[in-house]
Amino acid sequence: LQLFIKTLTGKTSTVEMEPSDTIENLKAKIQDKEGIPPDQQRLIFAGKQLEDGRTLSDYNIQKESTLHLVL
């Protein structure tokens, strides 16, 4: 599924993920695209901070969801 990652600067990146992927996997993919180390990334979806060990489906993240990346 395609996700949009929006940064505080207003920049939006697109990443392709599976519902079974963990937040950790997602942060690794963001690191590949943006060069931001996972330990500096905080991802927010629906007002919640996402935890590394959980999966996208745990948070009911659907295709074309927008996640907010806070550093």
Rank of each mutant, 00 (worst) to 15 (best):
L1M: 13
L1P: 03
L1Q: 04
L1C: 05
L1T: 04
L1W: 10
L1S: 04
Q2P: 07
Q2I: 15
Q2Y: 11
L3M: 04
L3R: 00
L3G: 00
L3E: 01
L3P: 00
L3T: 01
F4T: 11
F4W: 10
F4R: 07
F4D: 03
F4H: 10
F4A: 04
F4V: 08
I5C: 03
I5P: 01
I5M: 02
I5S: 00
I5K: 00
I5E: 01
I5H: 01
I5L: 05
K6G: 03
K6D: 04
K6Y: 08
K6P: 02
K6S: 08
K6V: 15
K6F: 08
K6E: 08
K6A: 07
K6L: 11
T7A: 07
T7H: 14
T7E: 07
T7W: 15
T7V: 09
T7G: 10
T7N: 08
L8P: 14
L8I: 12
L8R: 12
L8F: 13
L8V: 12
L8A: 13
L8T: 13
T9Y: 13
T9W: 14
T9E: 12
T9M: 11
T9I: 07
T9H: 13
T9V: 07
T9R: 10
T9N: 14
G10H: 05
G10T: 03
G10D: 04
G10L: 04
K11E: 10
K11P: 06
K11W: 13
K11F: 11
K11L: 11
T12L: 12
T12N: 06
T12V: 14
T12E: 06
T12A: 06
T12P: 05
T12K: 07
S13L: 15
S13H: 15
S13Y: 15
S13F: 15
S13E: 07
S13N: 07
T14H: 08
T14I: 14
T14W: 11
T14L: 13
T14Q: 10
T14M: 14
T14G: 05
T14S: 10
T14N: 06
V15D: 01
V15Q: 03
V15W: 08
V15G: 01
E16P: 04
E16T: 13
E16S: 12
E16I: 13
E16D: 10
E16W: 15
E16F: 15
M17P: 01
M17Q: 02
M17C: 11
M17R: 00
M17H: 04
E18H: 13
E18V: 11
E18I: 10
E18F: 14
E18A: 12
E18N: 13
P19K: 07
P19I: 09
P19E: 09
P19W: 10
P19L: 12
P19G: 07
P19A: 12
P19S: 11
S20D: 12
S20R: 08
S20C: 07
S20V: 05
S20W: 15
S20A: 08
D21G: 09
D21K: 03
D21T: 04
D21S: 09
D21Y: 04
D21V: 02
D21R: 03
D21A: 11
T22K: 07
T22M: 06
T22Y: 07
I23Y: 01
I23A: 01
I23L: 05
I23E: 00
I23Q: 00
I23V: 12
I23G: 01
I23K: 01
I23F: 02
I23W: 02
I23M: 03
E24M: 13
E24D: 09
E24V: 07
E24Y: 14
E24S: 13
N25V: 12
N25E: 12
N25G: 09
N25Y: 13
N25P: 00
L26R: 00
L26E: 02
L26V: 06
L26C: 01
L26P: 00
L26H: 00
K27Q: 02
K27S: 00
K27R: 06
K27G: 00
K27P: 00
K27F: 02
K27A: 02
K27T: 01
K27W: 03
A28K: 15
A28T: 10
A28Y: 12
A28R: 14
A28M: 13
A28H: 12
A28C: 06
A28F: 12
A28Q: 13
K29V: 10
K29H: 07
K29S: 05
K29C: 05
K29Y: 08
K29W: 11
I30C: 01
I30Q: 00
I30F: 03
I30M: 04
I30S: 00
I30N: 01
I30E: 01
I30K: 00
Q31L: 09
Q31D: 05
Q31A: 14
D32N: 10
D32Y: 11
D32P: 02
D32S: 12
D32W: 10
K33S: 12
K33Q: 13
K33H: 09
K33R: 11
E34P: 01
E34W: 15
E34F: 15
E34C: 14
E34R: 06
E34D: 09
E34G: 05
E34V: 14
G35W: 03
G35A: 05
G35Q: 05
G35R: 05
I36Q: 03
I36K: 03
I36M: 04
I36S: 03
P37G: 05
P37I: 04
P37S: 08
P37T: 05
P37M: 06
P37W: 06
P38Y: 13
P38H: 11
P38E: 07
D39K: 11
D39G: 10
D39E: 14
D39W: 13
D39Q: 12
D39F: 11
Q40G: 06
Q40V: 11
Q40H: 11
Q40T: 08
Q40K: 09
Q40I: 11
Q40R: 12
Q41E: 01
Q41N: 02
Q41C: 05
Q41L: 08
R42A: 08
R42W: 11
R42N: 11
R42T: 15
R42S: 11
R42C: 11
L43P: 02
L43H: 00
L43C: 01
L43E: 01
L43K: 00
I44N: 05
I44K: 04
I44P: 00
I44E: 09
F45Q: 02
F45V: 03
F45M: 05
F45D: 01
F45E: 01
F45Y: 13
A46L: 12
A46D: 14
A46F: 09
A46C: 08
A46I: 06
A46P: 01
A46G: 13
G47Y: 04
G47H: 05
G47W: 05
G47K: 03
G47A: 04
G47V: 02
G47F: 05
G47T: 04
G47P: 01
G47L: 03
G47D: 06
K48C: 07
K48P: 00
K48E: 12
K48N: 09
K48H: 12
K48V: 14
Q49T: 14
Q49Y: 14
Q49I: 15
Q49S: 10
Q49G: 05
Q49V: 15
L50G: 00
L50D: 01
L50P: 01
L50K: 00
L50C: 02
L50R: 00
L50V: 04
L50I: 04
E51D: 09
E51W: 05
E51F: 06
E51Y: 07
E51P: 02
E51K: 08
E51R: 07
E51C: 07
E51I: 08
D52H: 05
D52M: 05
D52K: 04
D52R: 03
D52G: 07
D52Q: 05
D52T: 05
D52C: 04
G53L: 06
G53P: 05
G53Q: 10
G53S: 11
R54I: 05
R54Q: 09
R54Y: 13
R54W: 10
R54F: 13
R54N: 10
T55A: 06
T55K: 12
T55D: 02
T55F: 08
T55C: 04
T55Y: 07
T55W: 04
L56T: 01
L56M: 05
L56F: 07
L56Q: 01
L56V: 04
L56A: 03
S57N: 10
S57F: 09
S57Y: 08
S57A: 14
S57Q: 13
S57R: 12
S57W: 07
S57D: 08
D58H: 12
D58S: 14
D58K: 02
D58M: 05
D58E: 11
D58Q: 08
D58I: 03
D58T: 05
Y59W: 02
Y59M: 03
Y59G: 01
Y59D: 01
Y59T: 01
Y59L: 05
N60S: 11
N60K: 09
N60H: 10
N60W: 04
N60E: 07
N60R: 07
I61L: 07
I61T: 02
I61P: 02
Q62E: 11
Q62N: 09
Q62H: 10
Q62L: 11
Q62W: 08
K63F: 10
K63T: 15
K63H: 15
K63P: 15
K63A: 15
E64Y: 15
E64Q: 12
E64M: 13
E64W: 15
E64F: 15
S65Q: 08
S65M: 08
S65E: 08
S65V: 07
T66N: 04
T66C: 06
T66S: 05
T66F: 07
T66V: 14
T66K: 04
T66Y: 06
T66W: 09
T66G: 02
T66M: 07
L67P: 03
L67T: 01
L67K: 01
L67A: 02
H68A: 06
H68I: 15
H68N: 07
H68Q: 10
H68C: 11
H68S: 07
H68F: 15
H68V: 14
L69S: 00
L69F: 03
L69A: 02
L69V: 06
L69R: 00
L69D: 00
L69H: 01
L69C: 02
L69K: 00
V70T: 09
V70H: 10
V70W: 12
V70N: 06
V70M: 11
V70G: 05
V70E: 10
L71W: 12
L71E: 07
L71H: 08
L71D: 06
L71M: 10
L71S: 08
L71R: 08
